[in-house]
Every structure is written in structure tokens, then in C-alpha cells.
Simulated scan of single mutants.
Amino acid sequence: MDFGLYLYGIFPEVIPEQFALEGMDKQPVHSALIEGFSFLYSVAKQEKYLASRRNLICHEKVLEELMNEGFRTLLPLRFGMVVKTWETITEQLTKPYQDKLKDLFAKLAGRREVSVKIFWDGNSELQALLSVNQELKQRRDAMSGKNLSMEEVIDIGQMIEQGLSLRKQEVIQAFRNELNSLALEVVENDPMTEGMIYNTAYLIPWDAEAEFSDRVEAIDQKFADRLRIRYNNLTAPYTFAQLV
């Protein structure tokens, strides 16, 4: 049973049918030209799609495969978008937002989104903080085994939190100093997990990626085993393709 059309993204050019892409539910992926925009889609076999890891990867893979084939300018659509007919797209998207869509394509032409996520081990950082701040270590050790007042607990906790915050900002500033100058736009997002201390997307010229990657590698070597860096150099530009 078919439930409509599952949409992946929008391109400013016609996508040839020669690319044998497999989409959601293992359905073949096609392209449809609507109001001058090419929509990538497959037949939807479900009314609503679960945001499972498998489904999310499938959605992303379709877009990334086309990017690897040279179709680098695109507006990715959010996961799970299913429409009954193309008239819905015409009425709710291409007609009312035609100029904004064109502006976004102009903005993204020749550019790519890359992202950097930084993780550290909070316990290791605490031990490192105490090793370089003997006064703080002695004060914390002196409280061991004692019945502390709430004020004392809050006081030592604030001192430790401030120390860790300074160490965190030192790391973050190193990334800002090295990477931001290569980017046309930078968006710092909220960390997604407790161990993540920095989560940032960059819009860079397509041919600047090699230098960007080298700088990430140099920062990684500078901090040795202190950090775990997740660098994504090929991703659909979700961060910089917002209509509103």
C-alpha cells in the first residue's frame, strides 16, 4: 500500500534518473521538477516513519550519495516528510517561498557544511584540574570524611565548576581561533550529551575543506589524548538552509 511521497531534499537542477539510489523501504529514488525546483523522492510505504538510527541513516545516505556525484547544492528536507500529492508542495512550499528558496540556493552555491563535535572525560579533567591547582586540591582533600554544611558543599562545588569551565573555554577558544576564520558562517549549537563540550557547524567554501581538515587535525594533536573530536566533512546543509 502506498501512502504518498517521501521527500529527501530540493535541488536547483534536474537530477538524472541514471543514479540508482535506494531510499526508504528500499524504494527507488526519483526526481520531480516542481515549479522549477527538483524534489528528490520515493514512494512512501508508511504513513509515518520512526526516527530510528536505520531510517535516519537511510535518509542522509540518499543526499550524501548525490553530493558525492557532484550535486553539491541542495536544501535538505527534515526526516519523515511525507506528502499525499505534489499539489501540497506547490501550495505550501514552492509558491509561497519561491524567492526564499532561490536565495538559499544562491547562498549555498559553492559552499558546504562541515561540523565539529568535541568530547572530553569529565573525571579526567577534574583530576587534571586538581593536579595543577594544589590549593583547590588541598581544600577538597581537607573536607574528606567531614560532615560539611550546605554552604561548604556549595562553595567547593562552585570552585571546581569554575575551574572546569575555564579549562573548557581554553579548548573551545583554540577551535574558534583556528577554524572560524575559514568559515563564512558559524553556528554554535548546544552540546548533545554530557561529555560533549562543543558542537559547531561551519559554512565554508567547498574547496577550503582540505585546509579546514588539516587545522582540525593540528588542534587534535595539540590536545593529544585529552579530547575526542568528531569531524564530519560531508553533510547536507541543514544548519544553513533554514527558511525561517
Results as ranks from 00 to 15, higher is better:
31 S>L: 06
155 D>K: 09
40 L>Q: 10
1 M>T: 11
107 K>T: 04
129 L>D: 05
186 V>R: 01
113 E>Q: 10
66 L>A: 12
129 L>N: 05
68 N>G: 08
206 W>I: 12
236 A>H: 07
171 V>G: 03
72 R>F: 06
47 E>M: 14
223 F>N: 01
151 E>M: 09
66 L>R: 12
220 D>C: 02
198 Y>R: 04
192 M>Q: 14
53 R>E: 15
206 W>K: 12
88 T>F: 13
18 Q>K: 10
109 A>N: 15
134 Q>K: 15
112 R>S: 12
215 R>T: 04
174 A>T: 12
153 V>N: 09
163 G>K: 05
169 Q>V: 03
85 T>R: 07
44 A>N: 03
198 Y>F: 10
110 G>N: 12
4 G>D: 07
155 D>N: 13
8 Y>G: 13
197 I>L: 08
84 K>C: 03
143 M>H: 02
87 E>Y: 09
23 G>L: 06
229 I>A: 01
133 N>I: 01
31 S>I: 05
97 Y>A: 06
139 R>Q: 12
54 R>T: 15
178 E>M: 14
243 L>P: 13
204 I>D: 00
30 H>D: 06
19 F>S: 07
233 N>G: 04
111 R>I: 02
127 Q>V: 08
197 I>T: 02
230 R>A: 11
153 V>S: 10
204 I>F: 01
152 E>D: 12
221 Q>I: 01
63 L>V: 09
32 A>V: 13
241 A>N: 10
189 N>Q: 03
14 V>F: 08
136 L>Y: 05
48 K>F: 02
205 P>C: 10
189 N>M: 01
5 L>K: 14
102 K>S: 14
227 L>T: 01
45 K>F: 03
49 Y>V: 09
59 H>A: 09
94 T>G: 11
12 P>R: 09
234 L>M: 12
159 M>S: 12
8 Y>C: 12
207 D>P: 07
15 I>L: 13
21 L>K: 05
90 T>I: 13
106 A>N: 14
169 Q>W: 09
201 A>F: 00
80 G>K: 05
200 T>L: 00
201 A>Q: 00
202 Y>K: 00
160 I>H: 09
209 E>Q: 14
43 V>A: 02
141 D>S: 03
64 E>D: 06
21 L>V: 04
80 G>R: 03
49 Y>S: 04
206 W>E: 15
125 E>F: 01
163 G>L: 02
149 S>V: 12
170 E>L: 04
159 M>H: 14
107 K>P: 03
123 N>M: 10
7 L>W: 12
102 K>H: 15
13 E>L: 11
212 F>H: 10
88 T>D: 15
150 M>C: 02
190 D>H: 02
159 M>I: 07
161 E>L: 11
14 V>Q: 08
72 R>V: 13
232 N>S: 09
178 E>A: 13
237 P>Q: 04
53 R>I: 15
124 S>Q: 11
103 D>C: 10
21 L>T: 03
93 L>T: 11
128 A>T: 07
49 Y>M: 06
197 I>A: 00
201 A>M: 00
213 S>A: 15
17 E>I: 06
48 K>H: 10
242 Q>F: 02
33 L>G: 00
122 G>P: 06
114 V>S: 03
216 V>K: 05
53 R>S: 14
147 N>C: 04
151 E>C: 02
136 L>V: 07
